[in-house]
């Protein structure tokens, strides 16, 4: 059971109150029309998949509705760091 302390509402939120949003630092090319097919499909389909620390997005969907970033170990599921969306993860 994933439990995250939401950095916006300060509550411990349980897996069933949360929505997972995949990898955290996805860059949508700023000029889509300029982006090559390769760059665009990279953005659409290719994600990091580390066995270990993963930077990811979660939403406090059952609570305050805010998206934030989490560093989580994909093997132990230990939560290493939680930050608001405007910050970068360091873990």
């Amino acid at each position: 059971m994933i439990v995250l302390n939401c950095p916006y509402c300060g509550q411990d939120r349980h897996e069933e109150e949360l929505t997972y949003g995949g990898e955290a630092e996805i860059i949508r090319p700023l000029e889509p029309e300029e982006a090559s097919d390769e760059l665009w499909t990279e953005y659409l389909y290719f994600r990091t998949n580390p066995k270990g620390t993963h930077h990811e997005q979660w939403c406090c969907s059952g609570g305050c509705g805010q998206w934030f970033k989490v560093a989580r170990d994909t093997v132990s599921h230990d939560i290493l760091e939680v930050v608001t969306f405007d910050k970068r993860l360091s873990a």
Partner: peptide, 13 residues
């Protein structure tokens, strides 16, 4: 609604 909100928060804050 959630889709709008997500883009607002994460892409166009």
């Amino acid at each position: 609604g959630a889709w709008f909100e997500r883009w607002r928060q994460t892409e166009w804050p």
